[in-house]
């Protein structure tokens, strides 16, 4: 059992290095203060030990300046650490705009992944090295948490909404994925692995996988299936917001507030169309709650997204078969 005994976790992202740096500095600070207090306590306890039964301690006046100093020093150090930590946090939770979006669905007790190219995996996720990857995640049941120690990233996966996290692996290898939020009997078995490959290997792996329709083209098909295109299309007769070019933009709502068009907003607009109505439009759209599955939702959202980023409206036309099967349910 003595082999495989690391004292520090694997590092596979740039973020991991930054977190470790923060850790080292903080550990040094912690060590300094622990030793300082411990040394003083032990030294005083020995130096001023009671030498006769009736002896009492010396009377001392409280030093205000001392109180101020030892309140201020920790405060300043902690505020410094706070800013450093906040910087890393903001970086970790703000995916860069050029990140490629993958979809994750957690359910008791497995991880389901969907590649932008349409490939699906359970509990394993193959990704290319050096690629910024954004994970859009949701849960089918309870709260889970996506945690890859080697990447130093973690985010809870919630039912009913999307959360996201991103990473850019900088070395190849297989890294363990844990579920970090207690989710039931097999919580400790809800493991997975992220397999980071060289880009050409990844391409090869993708090609080997069952050729399916890409997420976006599946979304496009759904867009017609659910007749979204009768209203949300430039040449349609009905009046509904045109979805081209709106992703990531801020839109003004009927009540004067504004909202950024992102996955959660599009999701809500499909399931609860009138919750945040864009200014100037009538509440005409019916709800699709209960009609679209989680997987269809992400396909639709990807399609809407593609209308802005322009990543080809009909890529991978080689799609074979119907991709609407739902696995493992």
């Amino acid at each position: 059992m003595w082999k495989n005994f690391p004292l520090f976790p694997d590092k596979a992202t740039e973020l991991a290095g930054e977190v470790d740096q923060l850790t080292f500095v903080f550990l040094a600070i912690a060590l300094f203060f622990s030793l300082l207090v411990a040394t003083l306590v032990v030294y005083f306890a020995i130096r001023y030990r009671r030498r006769s039964e009736g002896q009492i301690g010396e009377v001392e006046e409280t030093g205000i300046w001392l109180e101020i100093v030892w309140s201020a020093i920790p405060l300043v150090i902690l505020l410094g650490m706070f800013f450093w930590g906040a910087k890393i946090y903001i970086k970790a939770y703000r995916p860069p705009s050029d990140a490629v979006e993958y979809f994750v669905t957690g359910k008791q007790w497995m991880w389901k992944f969907q590649h932008p190219e349409g490939n699906r995996e359970i509990n394993h996720l193959h990704v290319p090295v050096g690629q910024r990857i954004r994970l859009t995640m949701t849960s089918e049941d309870v709260i889970h948490s996506f945690f890859v120690p080697a990447f130093r990233v973690k985010a809870d996966v919630l039912p009913g909404r999307y959360t996201s996290i991103w990473f850019e692996a900088n070395k190849t290898g297989t890294f363990t994925l844990f579920c970090a939020e207690f989710c039931g009997a097999e919580h400790s078995q809800m493991l997975g692995s992220i397999i980071v490959m060289e880009p050409q290997d990844y391409e090869q792996w993708l090609a080997q996988g069952q050729p399916e329709k890409g997420v976006i083209s599946s979304g496009e098909a759904l867009f017609s299936k659910y007749v979204c295109n009768t209203c949300h299309y430039p040449d349609s007769a009905a009046r509904a917001p045109i979805l081209h070019g709106i992703w990531g933009e801020e839109v003004v709502l009927g009540d004067g507030e504004s909202v950024v068009v992102d996955a959660n907003y599009v999701r809500e607009s499909i399931l609860e169309p009138t919750a945040k109505l864009v200014k100037g439009y009538q509440p005409l759209m019916p709800t699709y709650q209960g009609q679209v599955s989680e997987e269809e939702l992400v396909q639709l959202i990807s399609y809407v997204r593609s209308l802005t980023s322009g990543t080809a409206e009909s890529q991978d036309s080689t799609a074979v078969g119907d991709s609407n099967e739902s696995e493992g349910q």
Partner: peptide, 23 residues
Amino acid sequence: FVIGGLTGTMLATLGFDIHVHDT
């Protein structure tokens, strides 16, 4: 208590907490 308190401030540091939260 000093060790517990200092590790508490480490956990309060956002960037560090992402990694060790729920561990």
